[in-house]
Write a protein that binds this DNA or RNA. Structure first.
Lengths: 122, 122
DNA sequence: CGGCTGTCTCGACGTCTGTCGAAGTAGAGA
DNA sequence: TCTCTACTTCGACAGACGTCGAGACAGCCG
């Protein structure tokens, strides 16, 4: 950290309201791009995109890893790695309850990404 | 290619209407994920996210590469490489007119990505 | 306590990516 | 035609990424 204060929470990934106007409406500043690009990057893998969808569309709002893993032809560690990527991108949350670990989506950041990509109906 | 026909254009990136229900509404099938993930991946770099925004928000609907390049501390070849990535992801189109090359956004795919990320206001 | 199961971490591997400089191509103009 | 500018392609390199097997850790249940 070279900045001593970093006073501005440039983009708040937890906010429920869109952080910024649509990408097609105003130039995205470098700081915003630096914060949001990793989220897109995390969705930029087919496996993670499916994982994200399975988590976000879960009936109870959460899914057990044990239900996620068998849906792919990949080993447990690999799925775990992808879930970690989604976690670090702020797209999902994990919680351990007893033997199992449950993942749930963070709707706030999804909304922000969606609004960023919004295009005028023109 | 093991399939002999591949008859279904599973996802039409040029369509203006959303190709598929929101990611949080129904599990994204593997084929859809395979088609859309590259687009998210292309947006998963801060430079490309800014380039995309500069192109999509252009006043005349298009931008000259010569206006794009000086906005970054990167060499021409590097910007050219990122633009190629955006092109190959189907996010932008390029057209040469005389000396200059102009890029414009493809709103269709942007709309599809946005609708995929849409979350119920719940 | 000891063993079992579910999940994550670690280390390794081949591949892909972002970046550059050098060289190639396309068009404008003298 | 010759040269200049704008942009792309090529070749190279360091670093990041996706995947796996082996092992570590956490919680359950005898």
């Amino acid at each position: 950290m070279s900045k001593q204060a970093a006073p501005l929470p440039v983009v708040d990934l937890n906010a429920d309201a869109p952080c910024c106007p649509p990408l097609a409406q105003r130039r995205v500043p470098a700081e915003t791009a630096a914060v949001l690009a990793p989220a897109f990057k995390a969705l930029g893998d087919p496996v993670r995109l499916q994982l994200m969808s399975m988590i976000a569309s879960a009936e109870q709002g959460e899914v057990c890893v044990c239900d996620l893993t068998p849906a792919f032809d990949l080993t447990g560690p690999t799925i775990s790695h992808h879930l970690k990527t989604l976690r670090e991108a702020g797209l999902v949350d994990a919680e351990r309850r007893g033997t199992w670990v449950y993942y749930r989506a963070r709707p706030g950041i999804l909304r922000q990404l969606a609004s960023l990509l919004t295009v005028d109906p023109a």
